[in-house]
Design a protein around this nucleic acid. Structure first.
Lengths: 210, 210
DNA sequence: CAGTATCCTCGAGGATACTG
DNA sequence: CAGTATCCTCGAGGATACTG
């Protein structure tokens, strides 16, 4: 719990948001994550006790509200953090977003982001299989009329579209540094341009200096 | 040095700015503070070694540039933090700016802020004396055509205008919660309205919920 | 699924004194 | 004015195992 003891709006905001992980936790909540385990998955490296402590502090400070019987939601104050996190992300994309270190690329994480930014809501269930070549992983994105989910296990439905890429290429797609038109990414089952249009990718892509 | 290990613009920005004191240090630099001791005075409670370490880190990351023979300046990346700090301050003013705790009111600090936000640049030297009643302090704001400075010792020039207020009232002025028209604040030597117009007060005043 | 309890480590940073 | 060097403390949080 950071304390600066200055009666200044910047200092007070920094006291609320300045604990380690709190800004990223706000990002997760703004993206719509609600469950404890879901939040933990979005913050690899956080310990469960730290996550619980941060959530308690944010609740006490009126940023987060617990729902019954489970789940966390942002209050008005919490939703208003969108502007702060956006500016932060734009600044980061512009000035602090060099090439990734190898251990910064996490296929689980980027697949979660891609799933959250899927724009397509098909009329009938559509299954997009993502084969990550390196590291070797397989995901199924199941698009239903009102829902999108990622599975690590075969969902039991036929795959409609198959995408094959390295984890770097998945990040490249998400941050707009490449597109599904890149022949190094394999796409089967639907035209590349059509599949590309199903995803919104990251809002920070425009700020990126490629 | 915070490390999250996520290739995400928000996470990378939080790695640069997430160390304790770094956001407030950015605020000071954006306000135009340049010297080591000047920065230290604006951050009561920081230790000299932590300040030195933070400045070194920001320099290494391309946010701060050292000037010869002394002084710290923001780079383009550093100046671009203005948008982040502004959003943070607006959020803090709106959602985290309750009544001050008694130990959060520091007359030295608020006098420094007031001095930085003095708009008037008179044609001849003008001396405004601020008598803080509680805690008992005395300051002289010396306005010259090209410069404003605060002294804790009598500057040797005649006082043109005298302002008498408590430290709470000085903060009230700075954050737009009161004005020099408040009769509880004494003003001698010039009309209240005129003196009030010499100061810009804080940019976060509009976001304040009084 | 959603946490809490307990123990222990280690590193951030405070205090103090010093230098060019 | 602008720092650095040294020593030491204490608390954040990791690891692990547990519960409703």
């Amino acid at each position: 719990m950071v304390r600066y003891g200055q009666y200044c709006p910047v200092a007070k905001a920094a006291e609320v948001l300045g604990d380690r992980w709190t800004l990223l936790l706000a990002r997760e909540l703004l993206q719509g994550a609600e469950g404890f385990n879901e939040l933990e998955r979005g913050l690899p490296g956080i310990s469960r006790s730290v996550l619980a402590q941060r959530l308690r502090t944010l609740e006490r400070r009126g940023i987060v509200q617990r729902a019954e019987p489970r789940g966390y939601h942002l209050t008005d104050a919490g939703r208003d953090l969108a502007g702060v996190i956006d500016k932060l992300g734009e600044w980061g994309a512009t000035w602090a977003f060099g090439d990734p270190l190898p251990d910064e690329l996490d296929p689980d994480l980027v697949m979660g982001w891609i799933a959250r930014h899927t724009a397509k809501r098909p009329e009938t269930r559509t299954v997009i299989q993502f084969d990550c070549r390196a590291p070797k992983r397989r995901y199924w994105l199941v698009l239903e009329p009102g829902d999108v989910s990622v599975c690590r296990e075969a969902p039991g439905f036929d795959t409609d579209v198959l995408v094959e890429a390295d984890v770097q290429q998945l990040y490249g797609l998400y941050f707009g540094r490449t597109t599904l038109r890149d022949p190094a990414i394999a796409v089967r089952g639907a035209p590349r341009g059509e599949v590309d249009s199903w995803f919104a990718w990251s809002k920070y892509a425009p700020a990126l200096r490629v």
